[in-house]
Write a protein that binds this DNA or RNA. Structure first.
Lengths: 366, 366
DNA sequence: GTCGCTGCTGGTAGCGCTGTCAACGTTCCT
DNA sequence: AGGAACGTTGACAGCGCTACCAGCAGCGAC
């Protein structure tokens, strides 16, 4: 059980080539572009490599080829379950490919993001996945100049650096509020935490929907920069209630807050949805099993990650997508927590996504 | 916005050396072991590097030194919040160091783990973090033979491959059941999902505690190999209730299941803790804000990840820890869901951990 | 039969850095 | 004063792989 570091491993490409009776360069080609070899040599190299248990030295490959097989991923948080779903999709898509994932956490700071970006770019990644569309000018310039494909995820916006996959948080929030209106609710509060750009856009969507209905009032909005949590949901709701005791619904910027609001209602013996309706955002797994079950806006997080990585790998390998911007849409999942005040229920509100496939989320799948 | 890949970047170590008026090798030393240089040259190289904006080529470094600066991390799941806390600790500890984290997901398969291990080891990582103590014989042999420090995390067991940090799931489960006994509960059910080795050991702890009290009955145990979820908690509890309607407590192998049980109780109008007490495991953030608040066994996940990575980096750099096996302990956090039947409450049950520091978990911190 | 094309293969020459070891100047000891 | 010991520096020789380009065979067209 030697703990120290020593010399290099063993079998090199040259050994494989020798056993196969070809030149090293031919063996090299086998791993990069097998089609270029004659069938005879191809099988010879293949079996030689297998026999010797050859494993390529990635450092040597990177040095010689001026290129790494690393996909850099910049996400704002490792805790937020939203990102763990996305990540799972990314990892799943990268599995089996030659690319490895290099993850970095920006902690919701675009300055930190800029720093990490510089770090990544210096290593010449094969591709990059970045979160959102709100980079610093400097970051954006670096991305524009970058020598690799890039996918922006989580939302869609006007001018993609390269590729983009996500959905409109603004529209999703509007749809959620519209759903509450349909159910007969009027005095709809907003509860939000962290207030990162995407939450901010959900707030914007809420505000616009409320204004359209001439129902907007700044006092209905409670937000904080504090990171989100279930407990915080209860606290923010308490603030909201203190300010506006007669609200009849709450739109929560995420599901944790919604759960906190639900618990707080229970604590205060406020009937849900009788007195107050609750709508969350993301449709985490627990929303469907709460009592009452909680309405939420379903987003395709796993699919987003998986598609992003797949698009990126395709682009790296020269197969640029027909459609560089992909709107994955969202869907309001109506449940008990927002059921009708008056009886005139409608079908679920579905949003965006040209090809809004609405693949079932494998939440809690692994 | 060139998307393609091209030639290499620019300034090399040689350029820096030239500007600084030293040999390349001296410049190289500056980055690896500054103390070995005279102060004069050190500052010359430093300012030259800064002036040119030199960024070392890691591939060349790895090739020449037969060593990478990559820490491999093998975890069973990217979804489970338990691991996202650990991961956050690992990433936090690695930040600022020269090491980068390479993450892989074993999906709770030790065969997959073996495969990934082989892959990792082939790249000569600087260090390795692996989950648990249940590797295949082959994996274990590879780890023993590995040429780098290794930390096993999540639990502690008899013979560490190298270093180890975690706690006893067995003892933690026993403590949870003991707490229920203290509160006057007798007919305690067990609900578990996934049944990975750690959940299995929690079950073992539960069984032993029940047997010690002559209360064990196989019919009180409901488990499934299905991945855990809140919904599943409700379903398993339903099974348990159908089988043994007169249980007075449920020990859940994790908090998601506990939340599911709580919701199911609410659905069935079973009073908690009046009719049935609930205890979870991990003490996720929401446990403290549920209604009633839910008792759980707190585990130091963030600290575990952070300490593991810190120990590993220290070991890589030659500073082996005095104590290669670290028991981080656990703590039963008593809340309403398990409060006393008869009145004889006691202080919280604390477990293990020579230096059981009980650092507050920064859950939902970022 | 020669030319030119295509398809496959191999030789040469590094990629940018560090391990090893020798060489140098200085200090300190006897 | 001579030499050992130390601290600092540099020369050399690759690490294992691939870019580039040359070479060769096989084939069809003129």
């Amino acid at each position: 059980m030697g703990r120290k570091r020593t010399k290099s491993g063993k079998i090199r490409l040259a050994e494989v080539a020798e056993l196969a009776g070809v030149s090293p360069i031919t063996a090299s080609r086998f791993f990069r572009n097998p089609e270029a070899l004659s069938v005879a040599k191809r099988t010879r190299v293949e079996s030689a490599a297998k026999e010797l248990g050859y494993v390529p030295n990635l450092a040597a490959r990177a040095l010689a080829s001026h290129r790494t097989e690393v996909i850099g991923v910049l996400i704002p948080s490792l805790t937020n379950n939203v990102f763990s779903d996305v990540l799972r999709g990314i990892y799943d898509a990268s599995e089996g490919s030659r690319y490895s994932i290099q993850l970095s956490n920006t902690r919701y700071s675009i300055l930190q993001e800029e720093k990490l970006l510089r770090l990544f770019l210096a290593q010449k990644p094969a591709g990059l996945i970045v979160t959102g569309i709100d980079q610093t000018a400097e970051s954006r310039a670096m991305l524009q100049a970058a020598d690799c494909p890039i996918v922006q995820i989580m939302e869609i916006g006007p001018d993609p650096v390269d590729m983009m996959i996500g959905f409109s948080h603004y529209d999703a929030a509007r749809a959620a509020v519209a759903h509450l209106f349909e159910q007969g609710h009027r005095k709809v509060g907003f509860v939000g935490a962290r207030m990162d750009p995407r939450v901010q856009r959900r707030l914007d969507g809420y505000v616009s929907a409320m204004k359209d209905a001439a129902l907007f009032d700044q006092r209905l909005v409670v937000t904080t920069a504090t990171p989100t949590s279930v407990t915080l949901g209860g606290a923010l709701f308490t603030d909201l209630l203190a300010r506006e005791p007669d609200i009849d619904a709450v739109f929560c910027a995420n599901d944790d807050l919604a759960l906190g609001v639900l618990f707080e209602c229970r604590r205060r013996e406020i009937a849900v949805p009788g007195q107050i309706a609750i709508v969350g955002f993301n449709d985490l797994e627990f929303m469907a099993s709460a009592v009452p079950t909680l309405t939420s806006v379903r987003t395709n997080r796993y699919e987003m990650g998986k598609t992003a990585a797949t698009m990126l790998i395709d682009a790296i390998e020269g197969r640029r997508p027909e459609q560089p911007v992909l709107d994955l849409g969202f869907r309001v999942i109506e449940r008990q927590s927002s059921s009708a005040r008056r009886s005139d229920s409608r079908p679920a509100v579905s949003g965006a996504g040209a090809a809004n496939k609405m693949i079932a989320l494998p939440s809690g799948q692994d």
